Amino acid sequence: LVRYRTISKIPQITLNFVDLKGDPFLASPTSDREIIAPKIKERTHNVTEKVTQVLSLGADVLPEYKLQAPRIHRWTILHYSPFKAVWDWLILLLVIYTAVFTPYSAAFLLKETEEGPPATECGYACQPLAVVDLIVDIMFIVDILINFRTTYVNANEEVVSHPGRIAVHYFKGWFLIDMVAAIPFDLLIFGSGSEELIGLLKTARLLRLVRVARKLDRYSEYGAAVLFLLMCTFALIAHWLACIWYAIGNMEQPHMDSRIGWLHNLGDQIGKPYNSSGLGGPSIKDKYVTALYFTFSSLTSVGFGNVSPNTNSEKIFSICVMLIGSLMYASIFGNVSAIIQRLYSGTARYHTQMLRVREFIRFHQIPNPLRQRLEEYFQHAWSYTNGIDMNAVLKGFPECLQADICLHLNRSLLQHCKPFRGATKGCLRALAMKFKTTHAPPGDTLVHAGDLLTALYFISRGSIEILRGDVVVAILGKNDIFGEPLNLYARPGKSNGDVRALTYCDLHKIHR
């Protein structure tokens, strides 16, 4: 019993810090008490220290592992850092350059016999395009090294910054494609005289377009951006097909006994025919423009016929181009109408809503002055909100995010209106959640004399007048207030005048 009563005193000691020596009952000389009392004092002292730490809000209350900052290894790049964003855009520009100039170089340097010394005699450094290609190869190699040090988000939505895990993730992902696209074939085969082989191998750079397509997928929600990307894709495919079309004609031209190829026909049409040795002929500019003209006309199913396939190889390629053109029509131009419709969806919704308003007016036989006010209010409210119901949009977000959005939407009023000066951010967040926005066209009466005042109004834009009878008592403008002081009276009061809008007004109100 003594032991039980001794232990039962522990909660009292913990909360009230009572010393055991003052209790005459606990001072009985028993061996059990002498053993338990020192333990009680020690526990009391420890609990006292913990309570003191909690009340003082000291940093040592938290466990040590929670006080440590997340460790980022040296030379690790955050995937959302500004440097990584700028670097990704730079790589994107280099990939676009590669997609345009690599097929052009591979096709127009394929057994090209233009006048001038061969590239091997001039030297590697004197070729501007080769120098640019070398810079692109170096940048792609540097990009691989950067990807080995860039964080990523795993399946659990955690940012991984450990170098080993980053390397394994990159090896399992895009490393092989990036490595093949970054191989400097110019340096590996330079001086061997195989410019045709170098041009063909350099087309491996186009593998990076797969990554670019995935990154550009984030802009699919913007109709104008999608339309622009589709047109660029169409032009890029036409450019690639033009390079292939020229390569076919250029390879067949020296081996044909009869002059029936499209390059021969082009030379005869523009007065620059090929001679018996295969030299001469149109310039590279004429060849490229004509090839691009043929691919565009074939892809769009126009086909004027002034550039036509004559050999079997050219006919087979033309059939493939027609098939590609039909697929592009289905996948690209078939979506253009939907994209344009999405661009004008706001206008369509406006006309639909206006039609419903006019049908309501016609069905209920609203008189002319009231009908005009109804239409003007709808037009003004639509121009202010673009038909978007803010309350319906915010309803799907958590309250903390709703408060931040409301604070942002009402920031101008909260910053410049005098009653809100000096208020804490928590108070402003709470008030912003209570605001209701209303609009009024010129001549609209917001409050009639004798109406119950259940709200306090803040003028965000425009001006109003307060009338008693036919006498203008006051004219209020931006950041002015009218209405009933909230919670100042037990019952809502009545208006002693009319409140009429002089201009288009936007008002925020808080109800009782």
Rank of each mutant, 00 (worst) to 15 (best):
C400G: 10
L93C: 01
R208Q: 09
K215N: 04
F333T: 03
R373V: 04
D133H: 01
I96W: 01
G280E: 01
L292M: 01
I361C: 06
Y377K: 01
V86Q: 01
S277N: 15
H162I: 11
G267H: 03
E115D: 05
G173E: 01
L230F: 12
F171R: 01
F101R: 09
V160Y: 01
S383F: 03
Q365P: 01
I135Q: 01
T150N: 01
A99V: 01
Q68T: 14
L188M: 12
A99Q: 01
I324F: 08
E114C: 04
L90P: 01
L207G: 15
R218M: 09
G123D: 04
P254Q: 15
W75F: 10
S301L: 10
C406I: 05
P441K: 08
H264F: 04
E376M: 06
I166C: 08
L209Y: 01
L394E: 01
G271C: 01
V180F: 08
H408P: 01
F228S: 09
I260P: 03
V357L: 07
Y124N: 04
A238N: 01
I366L: 05
R74F: 08
L413H: 01
K84D: 01
A181L: 01
T385K: 03
G267M: 01
C406D: 01
S383Y: 15
N156C: 11
R356P: 03
F83T: 07
P369T: 04
M322L: 03
A235M: 09
Y104V: 01
P118R: 15
R429Q: 01
P367T: 05
H162Y: 05
A432T: 04
G303F: 01
G249K: 01
L428A: 12
A224Y: 14
G267A: 14
R214L: 01
G261W: 01
A167R: 03
I388W: 12
P369K: 04
V336K: 01
A440G: 03
G249H: 01
E314Q: 03
Y329P: 05
N275R: 04
E252S: 01
T290W: 01
G426N: 04
V393E: 03
I260T: 04
L279I: 07
S313N: 14
L216K: 04
L374F: 01
W89S: 03
P118V: 07
L370A: 01
Y384V: 04
V131E: 01
Y384P: 03
I166V: 05
N368Q: 12
Q402R: 05
D186M: 11
A338P: 06
L93P: 01
V393N: 03
S308G: 01
K395C: 08
I237S: 04
T76L: 13
N391T: 06
T347G: 10
M256Q: 15
A430P: 01
Y274K: 01
G396Q: 15
Q127N: 06
H380R: 12
V142K: 02
K287P: 01
